[in-house]
């Protein structure tokens, strides 16, 4: 791929997905786009990109964008987050919502490991939850919906005991049990697109290891939207080590709780 191709990919990723495709990912990009080119019937990656630049077809554009996103995830990633969830947040929300299901949004759910990790935590303490799981990548969502993982994927972060309890073995795959899958609804969404105003808000939002890959220019905009989708006493989880800093005034970190944020007083005052 030529440097010009890479420049245009960078700008495609930035404008459509807010994604920061750094120059050190050039080799990785070529590697990831190989299978896309073959699938779409092109001889080479260069030929595919030339066709895309000549006539930007949405479906091809999104296939390219999806392949360049970072899909890496695993079960119970940032274990402290899940300890806080099952030990503190879910029990408190169960009491506060008095039997009404707790609404949770997994924003940037990739292949679903986060969704099932939340679901297992909820079922294990008997908390009623509804999980809306969104991602930009249609392919990642397809895998997430199947709830099926290889032996390699299933044991990344998951104890064998937990795996046996919540997943059924089918030949080489481990498939999330129906009771777990019933908790989640998967749908494609772009965090850059403003949500429709009248959708019910969420009690908890997980948006982990998403913002760090985004352009600094759009992070604030995404955070402000997450704030609007969150109830006033709700919580936001970012990835361990992810900071908001100057990107947005909407949230403040909760000290001593890895990756946990609540709405800042300024936002709450505005709401009142």
């Amino acid at each position: 791929m030529s440097p010009e191709d890479f420049d245009r990919l960078q700008s495609l990723m930035a404008t459509r997905a807010g994604y920061r495709l750094t120059r050190d990912r050039m080799k990785l990009a070529e590697h990831r786009l190989g299978p896309v080119a073959r699938r779409e019937g092109f001889e080479t990656v260069e030929a595919m990109l030339a066709a895309l630049w000549a006539r930007p077809v949405a479906s091809l554009g999104w296939a390219v964008i999806e392949a360049l996103l970072n899909p890496d995830t695993w079960f119970r990633r940032d274990r402290g987050t899940f300890d806080t969830l099952s030990g503190e947040l879910l029990p408190a929300l169960v009491r506060a919502r008095a039997g009404k299901p707790i609404r949770i949004w997994s924003a940037g759910c990739s292949t679903g490991q986060e969704v099932w990790s939340i679901g297992m935590a909820a079922l294990e303490i008997g908390a009623a939850v509804e999980i809306v799981a969104t991602d930009l990548s249609q392919r990642a969502l397809e895998k997430a919906r199947t709830g099926a993982y290889t032996g390699f994927e299933i044991q990344r972060g998951l104890k064998a005991q937990t795996m046996l309890r919540w997943f059924d073995q089918a030949e080489d795959a481990w498939i999330a049990r129906a009771e777990l899958r019933a908790l989640a609804h998967f749908t494609r969404a772009n965090l850059l697109t403003p949500p429709t105003a009248d959708e019910p808000r969420f009690d908890l939002i997980f948006c982990r290891h998403v913002l760090d890959d985004m352009d600094a220019g759009v992070r604030g905009q995404v955070l402000d939207q997450l704030e609007r989708r969150l109830v006033d006493d709700g919580c936001l989880f970012l990835g361990a080590g992810e900071r908001i800093g100057a990107d947005s005034l909407a949230f403040r970190p909760v000290s001593g709780r890895q990756g946990l944020f609540v709405k800042s007083p300024t936002v709450l005052k505005r709401a009142a």
Partner: peptide, 11 residues
């Protein structure tokens, strides 16, 4: 606990 081969450092 139980590790199924093949495994890697992360697992």
């Amino acid at each position: 606990d139980y590790v199924m081969k093949p495994f890697d450092g992360e697992i």
